[in-house]
């Protein structure tokens, strides 16, 4: 039966593709967290009525083609420069709601300077930060957030802090900056986590829309291809290893303090 036939036969529609998610095949690997985050981002943009005013800034990394998936205006930035590009967009287009979507290599390695300073200036933008501890697009190299001992193609025997330094907790860093109004760390590995992550993205986009300062939403994510695990194993590995270093929860909220 097709879905139309099921609905015609009295079936109840319980889920639908978000209206703003484009009708194209995603290039992400099965099991990747990006797809889920794209979905909730598209839903939030629609629910907040931001389809017209949203401008997304895509990174370099696996999400380089994010602009192909959500039906709003986008600018594709150079590697790491999304917060600077977003600064230009937000400063010159005060009626727009500007967000960036970046991975850990883009945001916390090559783009650390732009990240810190955009946050410190309190640019009215939302930063969505996918942290899966690895460079996915280029084939699984070490990221700044790669855990100690974690094997990647450039740390084939595991990350050694004496050689490679420590995993960078950039979210804890930006929390300290006076320009950030909302900093949180979420995940999308369970339905409950997805609901929380969606609420966080909603809060971040509202803050950008309302010119409250910089919002920063880290999504601790899996890269089952890069980690060389099945999706369910990757989720389990993330819970057991990533969450210890990158514990979930709100780090800062000056807009709606608890």
């Amino acid at each position: 039966m097709t879905k139309e036939e099921i609905i015609a036969a009295g079936g109840t529609k319980v889920a639908a593709k978000p209206r703003l998610l484009m009708d194209v095949n995603m290039h992400y690997c099965p099991g990747c967290s990006h797809g889920v985050v794209h979905k909730i981002l598209a839903e939030v943009i629609d629910e907040l009525g931001l389809e017209d005013s949203a401008i997304g800034v895509a990174p370099v990394g696996c999400a380089v083609f994010a602009y192909n998936y959500i039906d709003v205006d986008w600018v594709e930035a150079a590697h790491g420069r999304a917060p600077a590009v977003a600064t230009g967009l937000a400063r010159l287009n005060p009626d727009a709601t500007v967000f960036t979507y970046q991975g850990d290599g883009d945001l916390a390695a090559i783009g650390t300077c732009e990240t810190i300073h955009a946050c410190n200036r309190g640019e009215n933008i939302a930063i969505i930060f996918i942290n899966n501890g690895i460079y996915g697009m280029t084939g699984g190299q070490m990221a700044p957030t790669t855990l100690e001992g974690m094997k990647t193609s450039t740390t084939p025997y595991g990350r050694r802090v004496d050689l490679n330094g420590y995993p960078l907790k950039i979210t804890d860093l930006v929390k300290e900056l006076d320009g950030t109004c909302y900093v949180t760390r979420e995940a999308v590995h369970t339905p409950a986590a997805v609901r929380k992550a969606k609420a966080a993205i909603r809060q971040a986009l509202m803050n950008a829309r309302d010119k409250k300062g910089t919002s920063f939403v880290e999504i601790v994510s899996t890269c089952n291809s890069g980690w060389k695990m099945s999706p369910d194993k990757a989720n389990k590995w993330m819970e057991e290893n990533m969450f210890e270093k990158y514990p979930l929860g709100e780090l800062k909220n000056t807009v709606n303090p608890k």
């Binding site: 600018v75 600077a84 300073h117």
Partner: peptide
Amino acid sequence: VLQAESEVAAINMVYGGASS
């Protein structure tokens, strides 16, 4: 008018503004 954190950031702010 904005003093950027670097020339790299400045030109990318230009890129963002020009895109719009």
